[in-house]
């Protein structure tokens, strides 16, 4: 029974595969040693797909321009922004952030902006790079 599916299958067999093998084609046998190899630079990683313009990545916070108006804290839906009274600045927990960007829109001084960084997964939500302005 030559159905259209069979033609599709044969065609796809020889086509470029849809999967993007990021970061590696197959999972390594040993994660720890693979991580060591990557750190040394002996293991080449496949690049991720480019992000589009206006991508919502990890939020950058310009501490110096902040005037401490607390507007961003009032619109943050996930309480990722916490106001530090003694400093009159905000502290940003990246692990809680939902990338809605309401703080970016509301900030009167434009202290927040989206970066293109998206590889921010980690095992420790209190890690150094996951809390901005600790």
């Amino acid at each position: 029974m030559p159905t259209s599916t069979i033609y599709l299958l044969i065609k796809q067999l020889f086509e470029k595969k849809a999967t993007n093998p990021f970061p590696l084609k197959y999972a390594p046998d040993d994660m720890t040693s693979a991580a060591e190899l990557i750190e040394k630079g002996d293991l080449d990683l496949n690049p991720p797909i480019d992000v589009p313009e206006n991508y919502r990545g990890k939020i950058r916070y310009d501490k110096d321009c902040c005037i401490g108006c607390k507007l961003c804290v009032r619109v943050c839906p996930s309480e990722a922004l916490v106001f530090k009274e003694e400093e009159a600045k905000v502290k940003h927990y990246v692990a809680r952030c939902t990338f809605c960007g309401q703080c970016v829109n509301i900030c009167p001084k434009s202290c927040f902006e989206f970066s293109e960084e998206f590889l921010i997964a980690g095992t420790d939500k209190n890690a150094e790079d996951l809390i901005i302005n600790p």
Binding site: L9, L13, E15, K17, A18, T19, K25, Y26
Partner: peptide
């Protein structure tokens, strides 16, 4: 492997 490739996947080793 070959059925994965026919489905446009990379498939397991």
């Amino acid at each position: 492997k070959i059925s994965a490739m026919m489905q446009s996947r990379i498939g397991p080793p």
